[in-house]
Computed example of a mutant assay.
Amino acid sequence: MIASGPTPVAPFSHAVEADGWVMLTGQMPTWPGEPERALPEGIVAQTQRVMDNLELILKGIGMSLADVLQCRCYLTEFERDYGAFNETYSARFSEHRRPARTTIGVTALAVGALVEIDMVAKRP
């Protein structure tokens, strides 16, 4: 668990590492230190918050987005939000070094979120 990370919404660790491989649990657009605070409104704000939370966790284990190899992204309003999600998400990565990615439309996410993202990273 990363002290500066968001309060988990279920029983999990922020990240688990084995042999240099790091699996980051899917993060929600919640506010670290303020678990009762309302979620940001809209897909852009929620995607930014999720990415901020993932970066907090990576930083807490001495890594960064440059170490991420794969992301799985979940959207509750896939057709409506896919374009805006892609713009917001892609701004966090170098266009010459983007991780592999799968994006899936789902019927619902915890805490009523519009987006959740998990990651797989590897220590250099």
Rank of each mutant, 00 (worst) to 15 (best):
R72K: 14
Y82K: 15
V9K: 15
Y82L: 15
R97P: 01
N86G: 09
D19E: 13
D67A: 10
N53D: 04
A10M: 11
K122D: 02
K122F: 04
M1S: 15
H96M: 12
P124V: 00
A91W: 00
T107V: 05
E34C: 10
G42W: 05
D67R: 01
W21Y: 06
Y74S: 11
H14G: 08
R92V: 00
T30A: 14
A18R: 10
S94C: 01
L24N: 05
M28H: 14
V16Q: 12
T25L: 03
M23W: 06
A100C: 05
E79A: 13
K122G: 02
Y82D: 12
L69S: 07
A121G: 04
P99M: 01
S4V: 08
Y74V: 02
I43D: 08
P35S: 13
H14C: 04
D118H: 00
K59S: 10
L39Y: 03
I2K: 05
S13T: 07
R49Q: 15
H14T: 03
R101H: 05
V22C: 06
T47D: 09
L54I: 09
V9P: 10
L109G: 13
E87A: 14
T107I: 04
A100E: 12
V120Y: 05
L114K: 11
R49F: 00
R37I: 00
I117H: 07
A91T: 05
M28Q: 15
G83A: 14
I43M: 08
V44N: 09
E116C: 14
I57E: 07
P29R: 09
T30R: 08
M23L: 13
V68M: 01
Q46G: 11
L56K: 06
F85A: 12
L56G: 13
D67G: 07
R49G: 07
T103E: 08
T7N: 12
A15H: 04
E41R: 14
G42Y: 03
Q27K: 11
F93N: 08
